[in-house]
Computed example of a mutant assay.
Amino acid sequence: MNAEDPRPSPDADASERAPPLSIVIPAYNVAPYIEAAVRSALAQTMRDLEVVVVDDGSTDDTPRVLARLAAALDDPRLRILRQDNGGLSAARNAGILAARGEFIGLLDGDDVWLPQKAALHLGVMTGDPSIGLTFSHSEYMTEAGARSGDILLAGKAHPSLHDMIRRNHFGNGSTVVARRACFEEAGLFLPELRSCEDYEMWRRILWMTGYEAQLIPRPLTLYRLRESSLSFDSRKFVGYADMAMAILRRDMPNVPERVMRAGHAEHYRIAAWKAVSCGRRGDALALMLRALALRPFFLFTDWRALGAAVAIAAPQSLRDVLASTVKALQKSHSGVKSIMET
């Protein structure tokens, strides 16, 4: 890191006391979005917090936007660090190491927290010391920042380790607030994982610590849908997914193989859906076949897998209709599960 260690010394003045919550914002080439992310973190109804932004070697206007924002806000709760580019995991790790709070929230530099998120998460976590990870529902927003009203609902309120291996119930990297102790006991994000890093991290915490995960059943994160998602590289995603699953298999030998296979197949299903959404039907078909090799009855047990398979086989005009239908079904299905399980 191109900065001195920002952590306070043991004899720091009482006025430098640690706030209960540190919000860590990794930022890489997010100049159009980073101001909204930082302002949303500082605008929490819970005021006793700090915001640690880690500029991960941005080559766009991100450093200048952050400098102007810091000068305009003049808020002592905001700290901005800069390091050479190391990837999302390395940026998050730098922020976690610099953070002073007992609780650490993660907010990607292109997403937004709604004002009550911090208070609601800490209200649950301070009341129950067994909870190490909290997460919320998310609402999609456009690249320009307009709220869509479409909600990504978590499927389970108290996902177990096996639940989380089968599927990422946290949704995205901007929903989570974790106890610092989780990282102290289980370690930090793996820098070698440039994707699926959160998938591996949350499962490692549930495996290595005694902490549990708890849903805050409200949409408290705004997740930005960016045009760059159209350039989704299925080969890279699958490569990192395979690496993450290999790590889990190595480190969690007591987890049944059927659970691991289900999680592995889910990665391939996600990649297949993204590939067909980008118009790469050949890649999507190959990925779906890999999913079915791991779970032969996948199409009959998971409506999302069936929807992806039908989309791969359908012409473009029908795929557009199916995409809208699946989206509506997903909202309805997830909503019913959330009501039943919360």
Rank of each mutant, 00 (worst) to 15 (best):
R79D: 09
L133Q: 13
T209S: 07
S229E: 15
G86P: 01
P159T: 05
F183H: 12
G282F: 00
L230V: 05
M141V: 13
E35W: 01
L294N: 01
D13R: 15
P217R: 06
M288W: 03
A99Y: 15
A308I: 03
V38D: 07
R204Y: 07
P159S: 08
L133F: 02
A90T: 09
V276R: 07
A305Q: 00
N85T: 11
F183C: 11
E200A: 13
A12W: 12
G86A: 00
K337R: 14
S130Q: 15
L220N: 04
L289G: 04
A262H: 07
H169E: 11
I96V: 15
G95E: 06
L122R: 03
G149H: 04
F135M: 11
F135E: 03
A14Q: 10
G239R: 05
L161H: 07
D150T: 07
R249E: 14
R68Y: 00
A31S: 14
N2Y: 05
G145W: 11
V177H: 11
A293Q: 03
R290S: 15
A181W: 04
E192Y: 00
P19V: 14
G145E: 09
E184C: 10
F189D: 04
K274D: 10
D150K: 07
R290T: 10
A91E: 06
A246P: 00
A265N: 02
R47H: 04
L188W: 05
R249M: 12
A186I: 04
A36V: 12
Y240I: 01
S338M: 11
T325Q: 11
R235D: 12
L230W: 03
L42R: 06
M252L: 05
Y240F: 15
L133N: 06
A272D: 08
D13S: 14
A157L: 04
A265K: 06
P256N: 04
L220T: 03
A213D: 02
Y268W: 12
D302P: 09
T301S: 10
